[in-house]
Write a protein that binds this DNA or RNA. Structure first.
Lengths: 130, 130
DNA sequence: TCATATAATAACCTTTTGGTTATGAAACCA
DNA sequence: TGGTTTCATAACCAAAAGGTTATTATATGA
């Protein structure tokens, strides 16, 4: 059995985090929680969706470690846990050099060279060279 | 009908991007493409998976605008498009202040105050005060 | 003690996802 | 020309996702 405070290892955690972020309702919930903890009712209010649906979304976020919950009378206040967001951001940051454009130029250059080489071959063919 | 060079608008694009990133196979494909364009066969090689499965993954990445494809004889070389990664990273960056810890302290403080207030009430109750 | 508020769970349904095999199409090459 | 390579598409399947309504559990508070 999984230990109580179970949190998934690196790749599974990224799976869960990115999957959680793929839903607009859940992203909106995270945005709301960024301005402070909130109860399930409070979180559900802006959405045209049943309470169980919101509870399901919260469970997804909780299993990804992005939300933790406390106790306040009948309420189960949710709070944002930022660590998974940070890890996701770190993962994306690895591609920074890419969108900074340093690679695009190299790619373009390689493509051009390839195209020229091919053009030469075709030219050779047309001239009857083997 | 959607125009030819269709790319989804802001929220749908984030949906597609994060959903694409949620699969480890697709993340591995992106990592491979970060070191340069590759054909479908080349991309499929490391995986214990059929070629159509890889083609499906590529279509997901393509629909998210994260991969574009060229033509080289029978091959359809894939290249990484970094823009969606950049947008995803930008979205995450909004939560930076959170993992930097500036909010956690406030949250903790608020919780502590609430707990103390509650403790006082209970104490009052035990002493028989209404 | 009992009605109420908050939230979770169960059971169900539909759509999407991630995989398979089989087949088809396009371009190369001998 | 005709076989080979590369890739896409179709048809199918099981499991997961995202929603619903109905029900249950827990704690409050009068």
């Amino acid at each position: 059995m999984k230990p109580k405070g179970y949190l998934p290892a690196e790749p599974e955690r990224l799976d869960a985090t990115f999957a959680a972020l793929a839903d607009p309702t859940r992203r909106a919930i995270l945005a709301r929680l960024a301005s402070g903890p909130a109860s399930v009712m409070e979180l559900a209010e802006p959405f045209a969706m049943s309470q169980p649906a919101i509870s399901k979304h919260l469970k997804v976020l909780e299993r990804a470690g992005m939300v933790s919950r406390g106790r306040d009378a009948q309420r189960r206040p949710c709070r944002l846990e930022a660590r998974p967001l940070e890890l996701a951001r770190d993962w994306l940051e690895e591609y920074r050099q890419f969108w900074e454009g340093r690679f695009k130029k190299l790619d373009a250059l390689l493509d051009e060279m390839k195209a020229q080489a091919k053009a030469k071959v075709s030219q050779g063919r047309r001239r009857g060279k083997p």
